[in-house]
Design a protein around this nucleic acid. Structure first.
Lengths: 122, 122
DNA sequence: TGAACATATGAACAACTATTCATATGTTCA
DNA sequence: TGAACATATGAATAGTTGTTCATATGTTCA
């Protein structure tokens, strides 16, 4: 008898609309895919990286030009470019001492456009 | 004479392609807009919020059903819903004791679709 | 070869954030 | 009214992350 109460207490989860929760639970994308999405968005969630990507919409650029453009030091830019490359958002090519970075994805611009649309909508 | 060197040392910024930097600098969107974009993406950059938004694609839901769906406690969900509401991504309505949350933006789904496309592309 | 330069990287620190716990608010209904 | 319930909120904490500093790597060219 005390058992039932103990069970309820230990769970602490209440469902009001069991049918809805069940249906949505079955339709949710794979957990790992959702994690990957959040990871991707986290990459976009920093203004330095957003600026870099915006700059690269226009043209490929070398590291120190990006640093000059954003008025930040070279190391910070280099670190962020590594993050962007890790997410396959930019690629690079070396020409002598200089390394040029450019976009490596056709979806970024669409994503940014939609984000702009959301922001301007309000 | 020492002045020039001092100036260069103090600046520490090197530009290799001045023309490109200047052109891109003029075409960059307003600084505040870029910050707002990063802020918006940061909201998407958490798997709990991504999951909540995905759930709301299907149907409006109350707080405790979302908590049950994601197997998290009610407080955590409530905090995250507040973040989502602050970015105008969800809205809510109260029906008695129960508060129902739903999507408040038609762009989120497009943004998520593009993100999926990027992820599946690699 | 070695000086000069462009970029990359590791460590450290400060700032931020998601979750939990405890509790407050607001609503229903007996 | 007050007990029960759904949700909201403030404080605290643990984990994460962006930048800086110092230095390493890799390339050119005299």
């Amino acid at each position: 008898m005390g058992d039932d109460k103990a069970k309820i207490d230990s769970c602490e989860i209440n469902i009001i609309h069991e049918d809805i929760v069940k249906r949505i639970s079955e339709n949710m994308p794979d957990e790992n895919l959702l994690y990957d999405m959040a990871d991707l968005f986290r990459v976009f969630g920093d203004s330095t990286r957003v600026k870099i990507l915006h700059a690269l919409f226009e043209s490929e650029m070398c590291v120190c030009d990006i640093a000059a453009l954003l008025n930040m030091n070279q190391s910070a830019i280099s670190h962020q470019l590594r993050v962007l490359k890790g997410s396959r958002l930019v690629k690079n090519r070396r020409d002598g001492k200089v390394v040029y970075y450019s976009l490596d994805d056709e979806h970024v611009k669409h994503i940014f456009d939609q984000a702009m649309a959301h922001l301007k909508h309000k």
